[in-house]
Design a binder for these strands. Sequence first.
DNA 1: CGATCCTTTGATATGTTTCAAGCTTAGTGG
DNA 2: CCACTAAGCTTGAAACATATCAAAGGATCG
Lengths: 252, 252
Amino acid sequence: MSAILTGRPLAPLAERLARLSPLSEAERESLLSLPHTIRTLAASTHIVRDGDRVESCTILLSGFAYRYKITGEGARQIISVHIAGELLDLQHCFLPIADHGLQLLTDANVAVVPRQAIGDLVLAAPGIARAFWVDSLIDAAIFREWVVNVGRRNSRARVAHILCEIFLRLQAAGLVRGQRYILPMTQEQLADAVGLTSVHVNRVLKQLAEEGLISRDRRTIAIEDWGRLKRTGDFNERYLHHDVGGGLGAAT
Amino acid sequence: MSAILTGRPLAPLAERLARLSPLSEAERESLLSLPHTIRTLAASTHIVRDGDRVESCTILLSGFAYRYKITGEGARQIISVHIAGELLDLQHCFLPIADHGLQLLTDANVAVVPRQAIGDLVLAAPGIARAFWVDSLIDAAIFREWVVNVGRRNSRARVAHILCEIFLRLQAAGLVRGQRYILPMTQEQLADAVGLTSVHVNRVLKQLAEEGLISRDRRTIAIEDWGRLKRTGDFNERYLHHDVGGGLGAAT
DNA sequence: CGATCCTTTGATATGTTTCAAGCTTAGTGG
DNA sequence: CCACTAAGCTTGAAACATATCAAAGGATCG
């Protein structure tokens, strides 16, 4: 958030990408000087609606957001949850007709960049293209894990799994102190993320708490037994690729 | 397949990418001259195993493949199905530790390209980087739809949906004549793709056939009523982005 | 032509949903 | 500052879709 105030609002983006793939000083600079507008938006604002033609990419500077689709029967499936620092819809730079919706969970600050500017930049700066691409690849890895989560795990594991994932992602982003975090989702939203009903999610959360894996107060989750939570969530963090910057990534 | 025999085995790859994002003649040439080895592999060969360090990318020249993960309980979830002409594991160029397995459904011809060669090429040729990236983005769009499919649709819709998807993808690749295609998956594999049991998939297929939406003979599926099949599968092809080449994509 | 893998069918079990109602919390206006 | 309201959380009972278990029937391929 400080970056927003210091007038370098895209700094978190540059940081994030540099962690994924090495960037030269010039590349960092051109990222920081991307044309953009900063907006402060209220919780539940729609950033993109399914079917929209999107002319910009949004970077989440603070707050939470999620992507979702609505089925013909009116059911909602949440497809991913996004935290501060993440790129929300890079795919719209090249697939400009949205195939899903994108909505804020909380009040948030966002930076909006015209998609043309990103398109131009990636043609001019291959290193940046690579970094964006790696970001998309990690997104996709998370989608794959979610297919497994809703397709083949029981309700306990699904809920435990998403609690693990969000915890680790917040931790990697430096947004968590200790073993607790605020998960700004209603139980209904959580249910839509794991393919269950809110009633059932409620029962599972209660059970996880009774068994001492987590504790809850309003919407803050405290991890009480990380080992057992991971085990009941069948959670293996490899798919998050948090280590990707660590010396490989590129065909160096 | 003819391309394999004519000694231009990577031609289908160049075609595919050019459809996603405009490529110059020079870019096409450098794609065609990527170092590679051609292999003919038997059905059910593993191309990648979960956890492997992968040093190459595989292009499927003929046949079918699928990606999957195994849960801690031993259940398998199939994450995507791939058809001739597709890039199977572009993500391994930049995320070289595999987070899922990749296996052939049928005998197949593949081209194997060292990941370093692709990494070098995308830094040298931004237009190619963009095309690869768009390919990854479409992959991700399909994963998202699968999250919805297994998360929020009932068994009839799930099965109908995957039949629609594969039909359209084969059609777009020019691999289907008329309204029928060979789906080289057992009912158990189909079940693992839609998050059901094989017994239940069997019943759903039977019902879809009885109602006249499809007919079956061994593993060939004939679409008897595309409109109703789409409707019962809640299928909207927008997520496949088959039109993406049609004048946009790039920030032109 | 024997063996294996796959498909099909029936009967029963179960996890999750649905429906319904009461309860708590957070926000709003008097 | 309290009353009121809406939203979300919690709990119970019943219904249902899908899984599980089991066994027989086909297809495919040495």
